[in-house]
């Protein structure tokens, strides 16, 4: 067992975050701050895509707080970036599943886009990012989980409570829509 752990640790040295992760595991908050700086952009975009605008700031805090709390359990089997992004998806889906706000669940797409627009200066965004936001929630979830986060269809099916076939169709629909907005 000790030998296996040693191998995992050595493999972790290829990860550019290795040193900061090791320091953060020992309680170094500055090192964890550097990990935040390195990864916050991807995590923020993920939160923007999976939640409504008003919730993103809170969710971002929850994700990094939970990462801090759970970093002791990170074993280095995957890169820290992969571990953090998987944790973020779990927190975001959990957050959404616990939100029993019927109005939001059936918020019209126009309202969702308006919510997004009110939070952000859309001029900063590319057409494809805006188009991604205008997809239906389910379609956007599947696209983000598959093409951005690298999940497989059977994993997405489990996460979202849909069939793998539905996941494939939603991905197809999303790509067909988004291709019109490539620059």
């Amino acid at each position: 067992m000790a030998q296996a752990n040693a191998k995992e640790r050595l493999r972790g040295r290829d990860d550019p975050d290795f040193l900061d992760v090791e320091l953060a595991r020992k309680g170094d908050l500055e090192a964890f701050g550097r990990l935040y700086d390195e990864h916050v952009a991807r995590i923020n975009s993920l939160a923007e895509w999976m939640l409504s605008g008003v919730e993103v700031d809170d969710a971002l805090q929850d994700i990094f707080l939970r990462a801090w709390q759970k970093i002791e359990t990170y074993r280095g089997e995957a890169s820290f970036q992969t571990w953090l992004r998987r944790l973020a998806v779990n927190v975001l889906l959990r957050r959404r599943a616990t939100r029993r706000d019927w109005d939001y669940r059936y918020q019209s797409d126009e309202e969702q886009v308006a919510s997004y627009a009110s939070r952000q200066d859309l001029q900063l965004y590319t057409d494809i990012e805006i188009a991604l936001r205008s997809l239906s929630e389910r379609c956007r979830d599947v696209f983000v989980l598959h093409d951005v986060e690298g999940y497989k269809h059977d994993e997405i099916a489990t996460l979202l409570g849909i069939s793998a076939g539905t996941s494939r169709w939603q991905l197809h629909d999303a790509r067909m829509t988004l291709r019109k907005h490539l620059q």
């Binding site: 952009a41 991807r42 975009s45 700031d57 983000v144 093409d147 690298g150 790509r175 291709r179 490539l182």
Partner: peptide, 14 residues
């Protein structure tokens, strides 16, 4: 190209 864009998207800081 859409899939490539998604895989390489660097994200946006808050």
């Amino acid at each position: 190209r859409v899939a490539e864009w998604a895989a390489s998207f660097p994200g946006r800081k808050p």
